[in-house]
Amino acid sequence: MNIRPLITHLFLDIGGVLLTNGWDHEARQRAADHFGLDLADLEARHHLTFDTYEAGKISLDTYLERVVFHQKRTFTLGEFQAFMVAQSQPDNAMIGLMSRLKTRYGLKIAVVSNEGRELNAYRINTFHLNEFVDTFISSCFVHRRKPDEDIFRLALDITQAKAENVLYIENTPLFVQVAESLGIQGLLHTDFHATRSRLVAYGLADTSDARE
Rank of each mutant, 00 (worst) to 15 (best):
L19I: 06
T49V: 00
L10Q: 01
N171P: 02
I151A: 01
N130L: 05
T76M: 08
A86Y: 05
E79S: 13
C140D: 07
F35M: 07
T172H: 06
D206V: 14
D148Y: 05
T195E: 15
M98Y: 06
A86K: 14
E65A: 14
D41R: 02
L64V: 05
T52E: 08
R153E: 05
A210N: 09
S88H: 07
D51Y: 00
R100Y: 11
H46W: 01
N125Y: 08
H70Y: 15
Y122K: 13
Y122A: 11
L48M: 00
G78R: 08
L48P: 00
L107P: 09
H34F: 10
F75A: 11
I14T: 04
V112H: 03
L187C: 14
V142H: 09
T62Q: 12
A55K: 13
Q87G: 02
T74L: 10
F132A: 04
I137C: 06
H25A: 01
A40P: 00
R28L: 06
P147W: 06
M98T: 06
A93E: 10
A163M: 02
H143I: 05
R145Y: 01
V142Q: 04
D150M: 05
I124G: 09
T195D: 15
V111G: 08
P90H: 14
M84W: 10
D91V: 08
N120Q: 13
Y202L: 15
E180F: 14
V67N: 04
L188V: 11
Q160I: 03
R117Y: 07
V178D: 04
A40W: 03
L119C: 07
H9R: 02
T190A: 11
D13E: 12
S99Y: 05
E131L: 02
L60M: 13
G56K: 07
R211M: 08
V17N: 12
Y63N: 02
K72E: 15
I151D: 06
A121Y: 09
Q81M: 10
K108E: 04
S208W: 07
A32L: 05
F192V: 10
I184W: 05
F192A: 12
F136A: 11
F80L: 13
G203A: 14
R66V: 00
A32T: 04
V68D: 08
Y122I: 11
R198H: 15
D209P: 09
A205Y: 05
F11W: 01
L204H: 06
R4T: 09
A210W: 07
R144F: 06
T20H: 08
K108I: 02
N171Q: 07
I109V: 14
T126M: 11
N21P: 09
F35R: 05
S197I: 12
F141A: 06
R196G: 09
A205C: 12
Y63R: 04
L101M: 04
P90N: 12
K162H: 10
P90D: 11
T20R: 08
A161E: 04
E54S: 04
I109H: 03
Q71K: 12
M98E: 07
F141E: 11
L156K: 00
F75H: 07
Y105H: 00
E54I: 03
F69V: 01
R196A: 12
H9G: 03
P173F: 03
Q185C: 11
N92K: 14
I58A: 01
V68N: 09
I158C: 00
A163S: 08
Q89A: 10
A121L: 11
P173A: 10
L6V: 14
L10T: 02
S139D: 01
A179W: 03
R145W: 03
